[in-house]
Design a protein around this nucleic acid. Structure first.
Length: 640
RNA sequence: GCUGGCGUAGCUCAACUGGUAGAGCAGCUGAUUUGUAAUCAGCAGGUCGGGGGUUCGAAUCCCUCCGCCAGCUCCA
């Protein structure tokens, strides 16, 4: 009897001769005992597998340790199984759904009579620690479909999933400590690998994400290899809570949403409004510099318009109900595009006129389902930074380049990093797939030429054309939806958007729907969280607060405030209460500059400048110098 | 929209298993004239989310509607 030898190629190019059927764990051990101990999982021919997986043929293998991000996914997936193990032990009747690893952790869905309480979660967490301490090995088994049916005969959700497997598909099950799950793995070698974890929340979730199916109870948790990483993650959650725009919006008196006004309708208070105004003025000036034309359109339109655009057909449930005027039905506008198309159509356009760029801070109304509303980030009335660009097919690439330049400029001003994503043709796309794909390649070419990294969202494009999304990354690393630049071949068809070519015949124009900032509501809401309420000076509602030390310096302080205002700075004087009280107040309001005026400053014509968040580190300077410094901050739109 | 939790003064929160609402901050008034994150005192402020019910009696128990929060679903 001879065991066949196989050749294992390691990442550094070394080749190991191993017995056929050796496991990835054996490979790790062959490399060294340290690695064997640190190993979490392995990548065999590009596929992540468990360490107990036998290897039958020559293969390229790399061993994953805690240092590889992929190993975290494995750990978290195993954590989900350990959670299910704990729940099954404590609530034997609980049905099990899915339990995957997700971006920041994992979840598991259970079918139970009573939803879980926070106390239940604590109980589960304790039990999980016990399961982990027991160091149960995860064992993997290949089973036939019939065998699997037998194994999961008491788990209707698993049986349902099972029926979706093809007859010849490999079905694997994982077991640890008597808990069995239908699962393709991989897993960590044993439950003992799970040490640093936390259950975070519970909530309902539809079985298979389908709102027509029963609701399961989902438990979210997270896990890390190192305690420090777990702590850091939990701190980040705390930090996110502190930056919540709904909390800061109230504290800083920026906006409110009130029941009497209506769900999802934002009231911009003066301080919020000045922030928005500042951004809008900056944006409009920038658009004019970039050869956009500003347009305005009404917020109500005849339903006929939305019949042409097709919105009534595909978007009606997101629209407010119609208002009827003697048989003419009107709708609050859900999008600006049809209006802009009607402006385009008022003239015969020449190929020489294109590109034509119509921009509008257009207010739209959408009847969002009540459960989706969220502060300023998801509302029912919002003002889009919207534009529709009409181009010839040969101008697409150039125009996308300009858009990416503009997005880069704007987002940099606000201190955002960003990622780009190309979304390609979905299944249900309209029109000629070849046209769609050619356009996609054009966009891909633009991205490639720029030499910037981007993701590809396969099948994520709109039904009418591909798009490039700009996803911004905020100060604490969270991603937000930012700009989106969508190509549209469908609307030009519906609206008959043409231009006269050099051949003196009409040609179909191509439309680019684009937004750079999204909506003012979402953008400002995002900025509140990005800056944690501490806006850069140029956007701050109040830029300088002048604080006289005592009443006798009030006049001198007022003179300084007047000079600041004269220079276009938003400044005020606050003289009541003690200096300490007023400094505390100004710090809580996150005013970027405090100017203290007392006996010395009044005498020398100086001011003691205290910067937001800088504590007692202050600088005494001449008043002209101070004013010039603040003006410079504003003019350069300096961050911080 | 769905599942669960929650809704008390402008804000943040108390009020044991039903006995008739209280504190801090903010506001107002007065005193204090202040040198770097809360000076002191007084006053005022609530039909306990709305409606209905049970009860001698409801912030508390039940029903219903509205809203908020988490998640699902959906999106600028």
């Amino acid at each position: 009897m001879s065991i066949e030898q196989i050749r294992i190629t390691l990442p550094n190019g070394d080749v190991l001769e191993m017995d056929g059927g050796s496991t990835a764990g054996d490979v790790a051990a062959a490399i060294g005992p340290g690695l064997a101990k640190a190993a979490v999982a392995a990548v065999v021919n590009g596929e992540t597998v468990g360490l107990a997986e036998p290897i039958e043929a020559d293969a390229a293998i790399s061993i994953l340790t805690e240092k590889n991000p992929e190993s975290l996914v494995v750990l978290r997936h195993s954590a989900a199984h350990i959670l299910a193990t704990a729940v099954r032990e404590l609530r034997p009747g609980a049905g099990i759904g899915f339990g995957p690893a997700i971006d920041d952790g994992f979840y598991y869905d259970f079918e139970v009579d009573k939803p879980f309480t926070p106390e239940d979660l604590e109980e589960f967490e304790k039990k999980m620690a016990e399961v982990a301490a027991a160091d149960q090995p995860f064992t993997r088994r290949r089973v036939s479909k019939d065998e699997a049916r037998e194994l999961f005969s008491d788990d209707p959700l698993k049986l349902e999933r099972l029926e979706e497997f093809d007859a010849d598909e490999v079905i694997t099950v994982y077991e640890n400590g008597g808990f069995l799950d239908l699962c393709k793995g991989p897993h960590v070698p044993s439950t003992g690998k799970l040490v640093h974890f936390k259950l975070l929340s519970g909530a309902g979730a539809y079985w298979r994400g389908d709102e027509k199916r029963q609701m399961l109870q989902r438990i979210y948790g997270t896990a890390f290899h190192k305690k420090s990483a777990l702590d850091e993650h939990l701190n980040r959650l705390e930090e996110a809570k502190k930056r919540d725009h709904r909390v800061l919006g109230k504290e800083l008196d920026l906006y409110s949403i009130q029941e009497e006004v209506g769900q999802g309708f934002v009231l911009w208070h003066p301080k919020g409004a000045i922030i928005r105004h500042t951004i809008e003025e900056f944006l409009k000036a920038t658009l004019l510099e970039h050869e956009y034309d500003l347009v305005y359109s009404p917020q109500i339109a005849s339903e006929e318009l939305y019949k042409i655009s097709g919105h009534l057909e595909v978007f009606e449930e997101d629209m407010f109900p119609a208002m009827d005027d003697n048989g003419t039905r009107f709708r609050m506008k859900p999008m600006n595009c049809p209006h802009h198309f009607m402006i385009y159509k008022t003239q015969t356009r020449s190929y020489r006129d294109l590109p034509i760029r119509f921009a509008e801070l257009g207010t739209c109304y959408r009847y969002e389902r009540s459960g989706t509303l969220h502060g300023m980030l998801r509302v029912r009335c919002f003002t889009q930074d919207d534009a529709h660009i009409f181009v010839r097919p040969d101008q697409i690439a150039d125009e996308y380049d300009r858009l990416l330049d503009l997005a880069d400029y704007l987002l940099t001003v606000f201190g955002y990093e960003y990622h780009l994503a190309l979304a390609t043709r979905p299944e249900k796309a309209l029109g000629d797939p070849a046209v769609y794909d050619a356009a996609t390649e054009t966009l891909r070419g633009v991205l490639d030429r720029r030499g910037v990294g981007y993701e590809v969202d396969e099948g994520g494009g709109a039904f009418y054309g591909p798009k490039i999304d700009v996803n911004v990354v905020d100060a604490i690393g969270r991603e937000w939806q930012g700009g989106t630049f969508q190509l549209d071949f469908e609307m030009p068809e519906r609206f008959g958007l043409v231009y006269i070519g050099s051949d003196n015949t009409p040609h179909k124009a191509v439309v680019i729907h684009r937004t750079l900032l999204g909506s003012m509501e979402r953008f400002v809401g995002g900025l509140i969280e990005h800056y944690g309420g501490a806006f850069p000076t140029w956007m701050s509602p109040e830029q300088v607060r002048v604080l006289p030390v005592g009443e006798q310096w009030h006049e001198s302080a007022s003179a300084l405030a007047a000079d600041l205002k004269g220079a276009g700075i938003r400044a005020s004087v606050e003289g009541r209460e003690t200096l300490g009280y007023r400094i505390r107040e100004a710090e809580s309001l996150k005013i970027p500059y405090m100017g203290v005026v007392g006996e010395r400053e009044a005498a020398d014509g100086t001011v003691a400048v205290r910067r937001r968040g800088a504590g007692k580190k202050q600088e005494v300077m001449g008043r002209e110098q101070f004013i010039a410094a603040v003006v410079e901050q504003v003019e350069t739109k300096a961050l911080g």
